[in-house]
Design a protein around this nucleic acid. Structure first.
Lengths: 151, 151
DNA sequence: GTTATTTTTTTGTTAAAACATATAACATTT
DNA sequence: AAATGTTATATGTTTTAACAAAAAAATAAC
């Protein structure tokens, strides 16, 4: 569906505006779908993202700075995000012995189990959208987004 | 910059995942830039969006339902969004005489003035990104996003 | 070796989002 | 016209985000 119809626009929009609205709207659709997947597991999208980063560490701990720089949206509330995961026993948190300012965050087995259970659903979610495109179109969309941001 | 570099990914990502991350990240970049424009005017992106919808009504009032269906992200808090605009005298709110359940929201002259002042900055913002693309590429990005959502 | 500076994380406060529930007006049924 | 149902908006409560500022540890300066 065209973006003008999604927002019931009465007037014609120029292409710059349409792209912006389309990116914003597409993100909403992706997020809404993804939250439906996460809901039964009682974790938020941001919390999931942190778990993914920690799993990607393959056993070595991540401090707050490392977590932040790998997140999509740099939030200043990484501490409280990790707090939530800690309450659910999905991560552990320890002071780093070499530099006692730093905090070593590790994913627990329970955290890994949650991710493993989610993996096929996440892949299905990702492919649900990209299956609408040929592989050339998918590559094209990806590189056009990067060119659009131009940084 | 490639999305893998933006999030400092150590492993190769498949295209489905890259597109998702790219859409989410691009949206963050757009929103961050836009918020910088709005900041001096002390209105949020959502509030701006409502003002745009109201201006688009060209003098005829919009009720809460109309506002909601034209917003990008359907929020259940339209009432409180309008509350904020009312406090700043950017809109008026009146009970509809024909159907006293409905609320007629109108943009004020002050609201129109704010939008007029913002207009050139908003256009500049929109074009800042799309200028990185040729007009064919822009059209292509737009239609690929719509095809990707496929609804 | 004490003081200042910088880095890293945490905390406090205020604002906004999310979600469920409530109220109020209108419409329909009996 | 009372009861029931529906629609439109509002409110209460709980989470989450945003921003500033504080705290704690390491590093640098004197």
């Amino acid at each position: 569906m065209k973006i003008e119809d999604e927002i019931k626009s009465t007037i014609a929009l120029d292409i710059s505006k349409k792209i912006i609205l389309n990116v914003l709207y597409t993100q909403n659709v992706i997020i809404d779908n993804f939250n439906d997947i996460l809901k039964p597991y009682d974790i938020s999208g941001e919390q999931y993202n942190v778990l993914r980063i920690l799993r990607g560490q393959k056993g070595s701990p991540a401090n707050m700075f490392v977590i932040q720089e790998r997140m999509l949206a740099r939030t200043s509330n990484t501490t409280r995000l990790v707090d939530k995961l800690l309450l659910k026993n999905l991560v552990t948190r320890n002071v780093c012995p070499e530099n006692r300012r730093k905090i070593e965050v590790l994913i627990t087995q329970k955290g890994l189990d949650v991710l493993n259970e989610l993996d096929p659903k996440v892949i299905e979610h990702e492919e649900f959208f990209s299956n609408n495109l040929s592989s050339q179109e998918a590559e094209q969309l990806n590189s056009l987004l990067e060119k659009y941001r131009n940084k």
